[in-house]
Amino acid sequence: MNATIDDEDGYEDEERGPSKSQLKREKLALQALAERMAGMPRAELERLNLSAATWAALDETPRIKDIRARGRHWKRIANLLEREDMAAVHALVDQAEDRERKAAAHLHALERWRERLIADDEGALSEFIDACPEVDRQQLRTLIRAAQRDQERGRPDAPRKLFRFLRDSLESSTEM
């Protein structure tokens, strides 16, 4: 190694390069990215111009069951990904994560509406009707009463029906 010795910590900064820890963090990040990509739908991944070796490794993923073999497999895919266009890969994964966050936020909002309506929260019904003016009010009230009864009895059927009704109503109101 042709590094010059410095008084403070042994080597000059220009000649160091990334530390072993930094290199390991980058490898682990690539392995996590490989796991994430393996869980994505093939149609989404086809937008990337991946090499044949990377496709072969991704296609092989479902058949690997052993946890140790799976760990080696993620390392193999990570090594293959280093040769790919990482900007496109990161953009695709970021888009997928953004869609998942939005979908989760939407489901949480629906769950809050359902909880408020079942709890007979002051103004929840009128707020929902304001948010979805074309909603069938009679059917909504019937579903709320049934959900309240079923919740007291510990049954999940009517609250599920209410949730589906709220989801469909909000989706139809946002399409307009």
Rank of each mutant, 00 (worst) to 15 (best):
R137W: 05
R145Y: 04
A104K: 10
R47H: 10
L23H: 03
A147H: 08
L45H: 03
R160E: 10
L166M: 03
E97Q: 14
L117V: 02
F165L: 05
R68I: 09
A32H: 12
T54L: 10
E15S: 13
I129G: 01
M40E: 10
A124W: 02
G123M: 01
R72K: 15
R25M: 03
D9S: 13
L92S: 02
A96E: 10
A34I: 06
A38E: 03
E14D: 14
A87F: 00
Q22L: 07
D85T: 03
K65I: 12
A56H: 14
Q95T: 08
R36K: 14
P156G: 12
E152L: 15
R167Q: 15
A109S: 06
S172E: 14
A88N: 07
L58H: 07
D150L: 06
A146K: 13
R25K: 11
R167T: 05
S51Q: 12
G123F: 04
D157N: 13
M176Y: 02
D168T: 10
L28T: 11
W113C: 00
D13M: 10
L143G: 05
A56L: 12
R153N: 14
A52T: 14
R72A: 04
R63H: 10
R153I: 05
E60Y: 06
R114V: 01
R149K: 15
I5K: 12
H106Q: 01
E171T: 10
D9R: 11
P18Q: 08
D136I: 08
W74R: 07
L23I: 05
E8W: 11
R76W: 02
Q148D: 08
M86H: 05
R63G: 10
I67G: 03
Y11I: 14
R116A: 14
A87T: 15
R76Y: 07
W74I: 01
A56K: 15
T4M: 11
A32G: 06
L92Y: 04
D157K: 15
Q95H: 07
R101E: 05
A146T: 06
A147S: 15
T54M: 06
G154K: 10
R112T: 11
V135S: 03
I129L: 02
E171N: 14
H73W: 13
D59Y: 06
A78S: 11
Q31A: 06
P18A: 11
D66L: 07
V93K: 01
V89M: 04
R145I: 03
A88T: 04
D120R: 11
K20S: 09
R83T: 10
E122Q: 09
A29C: 01
H90K: 14
L162H: 07
L166Y: 05
R116N: 10
L162R: 03
R112A: 12
T174E: 13
L92T: 06
L28Y: 07
G123Q: 00
A104I: 06
A52R: 13
R47E: 15
A29L: 01
H106P: 00
G10T: 09
E26R: 11
R68F: 04
M37A: 04
S169T: 15
R149D: 15
F165V: 08
A87C: 00
R116I: 01
H108G: 00
E44S: 12
D6M: 08
E171Q: 14
E12C: 12
R76T: 14
